[in-house]
Simulated assay, not measured.
Amino acid sequence: MHPIITRRGALRYALAAACAPGLAFAQEAPFPSTNVHLVVPYAAGGATDIVARAVADKLGPRWGKPVVIDNKPGAGTTLAAAQVARAPGDGHLLYMTTSAHTISAALYKKLDYDPLASFAALTLVAKVPLVLVVRPSLDVSTLDEFTRYVRANPDKAAYASPGNGTAQHLTGEMFNAAMKTRMVHVPYKGDAPAITDLLGGSVDAMFATLTVVLPHIASGKLKAIALANGSRIEKVPAIPTFAEAGLPNFEAATWFGVLAPASLPKGLRERISRDIRAVVDQPDLRARLIDLGSEVVSNTPAAFEAFMQAESAKWQGIARQSGAVIN
């Protein structure tokens, strides 16, 4: 063999050997390489923020990097969602969102992102079902009695919600459609004023997030009629589901799930999902979520994606029925 060929061959071999470790490092870069930011589309102190911080506190030690909560409230979660949708899919910006994410496409005439296609689903952490509660002075205790009361008072019986286009509002419209009733919707600026008027008797009922009304149910100030969930909840085992009370397939919940930008590579998506599910399944965090009235889910990316698709289709139909639109 010619000497020059031998030298060239040796040089090529040496270059390949030198480059190989670098290539392997580029393909298997450690995650995370810096702080991870978990965006929450609500102000600090609310249920979503509480759940996000509980998860972040567990993920930080597991990853060896802090997981920082970024509260980005505004425009019904759409401002935060748009920010996340535009971000690089490297796993360092994640998003803890709620049912408002799948409702937004049904309500907003124009969004800068697609609530499904612009995101990679990681895991549905937990669901908090809505519960039908009634004012203390209303003489009903069962779903049948409540339905008879509403039918006897068309366009007079009123239900409260924390605002137009919320899951609580649309669930009331879903009930009207299912039971052929004509309850009047009374929107408020948040849960607190809605519940204040419900306690005072200004409105008859509310499809409320269970977490928000748990203290009032426990004290007897509000009567819980039925849970909009597929099964009873551990925190309040005495409250029947709508199916048990006579209305099957009536489910609606506030939920807490983690998303990432759609460009997140599949391998990293699976890794982050596994890590989040591992911390959610720790006994102390599960107990805390259950104490909030949650049903802990902690599912796979594929299962969460299918759940969001079903949620989106459901709310699209209810929004069309109710005519709810946000410009």
Results as ranks from 00 to 15, higher is better:
residue 13 Y to W: 09
residue 17 A to D: 08
residue 31 F to W: 01
residue 32 P to A: 09
residue 37 H to K: 14
residue 43 A to R: 11
residue 46 G to Y: 07
residue 46 G to T: 05
residue 52 A to T: 03
residue 52 A to M: 03
residue 62 R to K: 05
residue 64 G to S: 03
residue 66 P to T: 06
residue 68 V to Y: 10
residue 70 D to F: 06
residue 72 K to M: 15
residue 73 P to R: 02
residue 75 A to E: 12
residue 78 T to K: 02
residue 80 A to V: 05
residue 84 V to C: 05
residue 87 A to S: 14
residue 89 G to K: 02
residue 90 D to G: 01
residue 92 H to D: 02
residue 93 L to I: 15
residue 110 K to D: 13
residue 117 A to N: 11
residue 118 S to N: 06
residue 127 K to L: 14
residue 137 S to R: 00
residue 146 F to K: 04
residue 148 R to P: 11
residue 148 R to K: 15
residue 148 R to W: 11
residue 161 S to H: 06
residue 162 P to D: 08
residue 164 N to T: 13
residue 165 G to D: 00
residue 174 M to F: 07
residue 177 A to G: 10
residue 177 A to H: 11
residue 186 V to W: 04
residue 191 D to W: 12
residue 192 A to G: 08
residue 200 G to S: 04
residue 200 G to Y: 01
residue 205 A to S: 02
residue 205 A to F: 00
residue 208 A to I: 02
residue 209 T to C: 12
residue 210 L to D: 01
residue 219 S to V: 06
residue 223 K to R: 03
residue 232 R to H: 02
residue 240 P to M: 10
residue 247 L to Q: 07
residue 248 P to C: 12
residue 270 E to P: 00
residue 270 E to M: 01
residue 271 R to E: 00
residue 273 S to W: 00
residue 274 R to V: 00
residue 277 R to I: 06
residue 277 R to W: 02
residue 278 A to T: 05
residue 280 V to A: 05
residue 284 D to R: 07
residue 289 L to D: 03
residue 291 D to E: 08
residue 294 S to A: 11
residue 296 V to M: 03
residue 297 V to F: 11
residue 298 S to D: 09
residue 299 N to M: 04
residue 300 T to Q: 04
residue 303 A to H: 08
residue 303 A to V: 08
residue 311 E to K: 06
residue 312 S to M: 14
residue 322 S to V: 02
